[in-house]
Design a protein around this nucleic acid. Structure first.
Length: 696
DNA sequence: TGTTTAGGCTGT
DNA sequence: ACAGCCTAAACA
């Protein structure tokens, strides 16, 4: 009989679908999952035993194979899959195809697929065998990793779950209820795979991983919460903790891998209470200025606050906005806008409403915008509720609307003034649909609008070369065609000494602080360090163009970036040994993770007045997020696929390095014999039914 | 080092 | 309505 707990979302029993009566609900003393007693195949016999009851997931009492009597034909499916697996006449690719067909997905011509995605062939070889999803045999799309250490596409995994399966398709280990109800993307695997996909353009990217040590430890979790701030006004606490791991001069969207708190990145449509809040999530860093940018480097983001509305000069901006939008029959309203900045003499009291008193020129922030225009950089756009006359302004607060490109910029005499202002044409080019569209997809390239006022314009600037951020027809999405500009922020990697002093400071800050929710429950020094500094890993792109004659370097650079940067333990910062992935999708060395929680037990015995109370479950938070990983820590399974990829890449790197020394100009390498993985799991997996054989 | 900055608050 | 205060980043 299948054994399923109550659903985490609505509390229904996953088997009989009823909502259990309180007296019929039993909570596992190990994992805390609720179960419906009448649906248990072996319910606890006595009242006393219910206090220490361990659910089937925790005791390993999983349904035997083959399964019979499942309502949705799961056993049939399983039998079919096993038949395919047992068929020796089929190649692995054929098997994958058939499996995928069974699961309802289309069978892709995977060879073509991989070629067209521009995947680096060598790296693919290292990746493919070890990381591929067992269902579709492709590199996992939105990879999820089970606690037993196996990788699948999120969609394949969800299809599998939808069939009522609660065991790993690879090893039959039980899938915890939490993961079944809310599988989390394995972010480190995502970025590794993403980097494997070399852009189809000639340019490629090599990255070096460095740490941006942002002094976050003494910052409040939310701005303006300190006493001092309350006393003197919000702005006193303008520097709430920065949650994302990007430098303030980061261009483009903020991806999930730079969002260690939520692991989702800054999504289009996300909104914040005010500029301080917005700043904490990195969408727009300056807490006052409307443009984030540096004149010699480019502009990263703009905040449209509609400050011009009250200004007679700038009121024209809004009307122009409408005029421009109405001049297109296909509604470009939501995609285009024009903005002007500055122009007034704001020296002295910034609140004076003086008319513009000088010609604006392309300098400072205006020059930064012009540079972003010329280079075709993506510019993040945040709209404020203060932009009152725009139909697209949010009701309240600020909203991230995605990235735009500045297609043109020019100067023009303001309608009612006699001085010139700088103007820009922004066109949306985001992979996510705008908050206001019902489109399921992001923007597509479109012809540029004819802007009537350009006839009156002087100093028109248009992009001459190809844009850095452009639509890739093959991938069907906007991508960097050239490496984004490397961060100019001072960067330093923490050495041991600095780490130590930082840790000390954090400890002090922590003991002084009363409202550090994120730190609750964390006792381990290393974890304290990790979380409280929110230290911030920033992938600074030190890029180089790679021409066809330097393909060889691509491979070397790529391997290094993968092994060093993408397979890094979040605790020791080294390449992972015995990599484990938590159910919340964060990866660590097995040793580091276990060391951090040494001595912590899953349950805590309690007694009061001589009698023993029911053991209470210890909450152990993931070092990177608030998820409770106590149960996972009982038996963390090494992700052997990742481990073998690391070993292979390291071997490749070694081989490449050696041959560089010998013959630098030689652009090919001998395939070196694979060295066997020397590391072995310290203890055999408790729940694993059979030993995995991942490589042939 | 000083100046500037279209934010957000408190106080008059 | 406006003056004042705080903050941090860019830049001369």
């Amino acid at each position: 009989m299948a054994q399923l707990p109550c659903d985490g979302g609505n509390g229904n029993c996953s088997l009989c679908k009823s909502i259990p009566l309180p007296e019929e609900s039993l909570t596992c003393s190990l994992c805390g999952t609720p179960w419906h007693v009448p649906c248990l195949s072996s319910p606890p016999e006595s009242l006393a035993s219910t206090l220490q009851w361990h659910c089937p997931d925790c005791t390993g009492e999983i349904d035997p194979l083959p399964v019979s009597g499942e309502p949705d034909g799961g056993s049939e499916l399983l039998a079919s899959i096993r038949a395919i697996e047992a068929d020796d006449s089929l190649t692995d690719a054929d098997k994958a195809k058939k499996r995928q067909e069974l699961l309802g997905g289309k069978a892709d011509g995977d060879e073509d697929e991989k070629k067209s995605s521009g995947l680096n062939v060598d790296v693919l070889a290292a990746f493919g065998e070890n990381l591929e999803c067992s269902f579709c045999m492709q590199l996992p799309e939105r990879p999820v990793t089970t606690p037993c250490g196996h990788n699948f596409c999120l969609k394949c995994f969800e299809k599998w779950l939808a069939r009522g399966r609660r065991t790993c398709a690879k090893c039959r280990s039980a899938i915890p209820a939490k993961m079944a109800s809310n599988p989390r993307i394995n972010a480190s695997l995502v970025s590794a795979i993403r980097l494997a996909k070399v852009s189809k353009s000639a340019a490629s990217v090599a990255t070096a991983n460095v740490y941006h040590a942002i002094a976050n430890q003494d910052r409040p979790e939310k701005a303006y919460t300190t006493d001092r701030a309350k006393k003197t006004g919000k702005a006193n606490a303008a520097s709430g903790r920065i949650y994302v791991t990007i430098p303030s001069d980061h261009f483009g969207p903020i991806p999930a891998e730079n969002d260690p708190v939520r692991n989702q990145g800054v999504l289009v449509g996300e909104s914040w209470e005010d500029r301080m809040d917005c700043r904490q999530w990195g969408a727009h860093f300056p807490h006052i200025a409307g443009i984030a940018g540096q004149s010699k480097y480019g502009a990263q983001s703009v905040a449209l606050s509609g400050g011009y509305v009250d200004d007679e000069d700038h009121g024209e901006w809004v009307s122009l906005h409408w005029k421009v939008c109405f001049s297109f029959s296909h509604c470009s309203l939501c995609l285009l806008f024009l903005i002007i900045f500055g122009g007034r003499d704001l020296s002295g009291n910034k609140r004076t409403n003086k008319a513009q008193s000088f010609d604006q020129v392309f300098e400072h922030s205006n020059e930064a915008l012009k540079l972003s225009c010329e280079m075709g950089y993506p510019v993040r756009v945040v709209r404020s509720h203060k932009e009152k006359r725009s139909a697209y302004a949010p009701e309240e607060g600020l909203r991230y609307d995605g990235v735009y490109r500045i297609e043109k910029c020019w100067r023009k005499v303001g309608v009612q003034g006699s001085f010139k202002v700088c103007r820009y044409l922004f066109v949306r080019c985001d992979n996510e649909p705008a908050p206001w569209t019902s489109d399921e997809h992001g923007d597509r390239p479109r012809p540029l609008p004819n802007v009537p006022e350009l006839k009156m314009a002087t100093d028109l600037f248009e992009r001459n070369e190809s844009p850095s951020w452009d639509f890739n027809e093959g991938e069907g999405r906007w991508v960097w065609t050239r490496p984004p500009p490397p961060s100019q922020k001072p960067v330093h990697a923490l050495d041991a000494k600095e780490t130590k002093s930082l840790r000390k400071a954090i400890k002090a800050a922590h003991s002084n602080s009363t409202s550090k929710k994120l730190l609750n429950g964390l006792k381990s020094n290393s974890l304290l360090l990790l979380l409280s500094i929110s230290v911030v890993v920033c992938v600074v792109q030190s890029m180089r163009y790679i021409t066809s004659s330097l393909v060889y370097q691509t491979v070397v650079g790529y391997n290094r970036c993968c092994v060093d940067a993408e397979f890094k333990c979040l605790i020791c910062k080294d390449v992972m040994t015995l990599p484990v992935t938590t159910p919340c999708g964060h990866s660590f060395c097995k040793g580091c993770l276990e060391k951090g929680f040494a001595g912590k037990t899953l349950v805590r015995e309690r007694s009061r007045g001589g009698r023993t109370l029911r053991a209470r479950k210890n909450i152990i938070n993931c070092p990177c997020c608030p998820t409770d990983i106590a149960e996972f820590l009982q038996n963390p399974q090494v992700n052997t696929g990742v481990m073998e990829v690391i070993a292979k890449l390291q071997n490749m790197e070694k081989a490449e390095g050696a041959s560089v020394d010998e013959k630098e100009e030689k652009a090919e390498t001998e395939p070196e014999e694979e060295t066997p993985i020397v590391t072995e799991e310290a203890e055999p997996p408790r729940k694993r039914a059979k030993k995995l054989t991942l490589t042939q």
